Amino acid sequence: AGRAGQPLLEVKGLTFTYPGSQRAALKGVSLALAPGERAVLLGENGSGKTTLGKLLMGLLPAPKGCMRWEGQDMAKLPIHQLATGIGYVFQQPEHQFAAATVWEECLYSVRAKLGLRTGEPVPAAYVERAQRLLAAARLEHRLDASPFLLSGGEKRLLSVAAQFILPKKLYILDEPTAGTDYEGASILLRMCTEQSAEGAAFLVITHDMQVAESFASDVLCMEEGHLYKVENSEIYHAMTVDKN
């Protein structure tokens, strides 16, 4: 995994333009994330936040030489290799659900990794981890419910629990608190803080000031494709200043 002290993720001078577009969605973006770091990325719709997230997860083709994962050029790494180290929580949780019940959804990636069929027992360590995660998400009373029938906030908490079942080195969360109330957001951030304490790095893409203020070790802001770092005292100014 490269030399000691090296960032997990390193982006240098990343510029990206969608095919057929005249305007670059990202312009010279640079950032680095080390184990345990918690970066929160703020910015308005259309500023480039989601484009960056999709590039980091391999959902858009990475330009060569701009993005490195554990010292390797991400443009040359297969998506399945990135997916073992990077967990991605989509803006619409439904896009990731694949099982009939909340319990099976939480264990879905474990079954896939171990090649277990439905009905085959899951190793006890994973069962215990799933129980802990679903209790933390306050979903222990919904184990037999369909993931698709949960409330908006519950869907988000389930999608996060399902990502945490197989520990990853980096989690990228796209608007994880959208549609949740204050309590739901607090539960979600507490779950993220526990994973961070285990050494996971986070990049949280959000509009939510609660997330920036209570979770971030670094606050980044995106504006018209440019990324810059803001100090905490500047957050409100950066986000609320009248740009007209």
Score class of each variant (00 low, 15 high):
residue 138 R to H: 14
residue 145 A to Y: 12
residue 148 F to Y: 15
residue 203 L to E: 04
residue 144 D to R: 03
residue 162 A to V: 14
residue 171 Y to W: 08
residue 205 I to D: 06
residue 207 H to A: 07
residue 194 E to W: 06
residue 175 E to A: 03
residue 198 E to C: 11
residue 189 L to E: 05
residue 164 F to R: 03
residue 186 S to W: 03
residue 195 Q to G: 07
residue 194 E to G: 10
residue 174 D to G: 02
residue 152 G to E: 11
residue 192 C to G: 14
residue 132 R to G: 14
residue 170 L to G: 03
residue 210 Q to G: 07
residue 201 A to V: 12
residue 161 A to D: 08
residue 198 E to P: 00
residue 130 A to T: 10
residue 161 A to E: 06
residue 186 S to G: 13
residue 161 A to V: 04
residue 153 G to A: 10
residue 143 L to Q: 01
residue 201 A to P: 06
residue 141 H to C: 10
residue 146 S to A: 15
residue 186 S to E: 13
residue 157 L to H: 02
residue 139 L to M: 09
residue 136 A to C: 12
residue 177 T to S: 11
residue 155 K to C: 11
residue 154 E to H: 05
residue 177 T to N: 01
residue 181 D to L: 03
residue 186 S to Y: 06
residue 157 L to D: 04
residue 156 R to M: 03
residue 152 G to T: 03
residue 150 L to K: 05
residue 146 S to E: 11
residue 182 Y to H: 09
residue 152 G to H: 07
residue 207 H to W: 09
residue 168 K to M: 01
residue 191 M to R: 07
residue 206 T to M: 11
residue 156 R to I: 04
residue 133 L to I: 07
residue 184 G to A: 05
residue 154 E to C: 09
residue 200 A to L: 09
residue 148 F to S: 08
residue 211 V to F: 03
residue 185 A to R: 12
residue 177 T to Y: 00
residue 137 A to G: 08
residue 193 T to A: 12
residue 199 G to R: 01
residue 181 D to R: 00
residue 161 A to F: 02
residue 151 S to G: 07
residue 142 R to D: 03
residue 159 S to G: 13
residue 140 E to S: 15
residue 150 L to A: 11
residue 138 R to P: 01
residue 134 L to T: 02
residue 150 L to I: 10
residue 156 R to K: 15
residue 170 L to Y: 03
residue 142 R to H: 13
residue 179 G to H: 01
residue 194 E to L: 12
residue 187 I to Y: 04
residue 194 E to M: 07
residue 173 L to D: 02
residue 192 C to R: 08
residue 164 F to N: 00
residue 130 A to D: 01
residue 211 V to C: 04
residue 200 A to F: 05
residue 203 L to G: 06
residue 179 G to A: 04
residue 141 H to W: 10
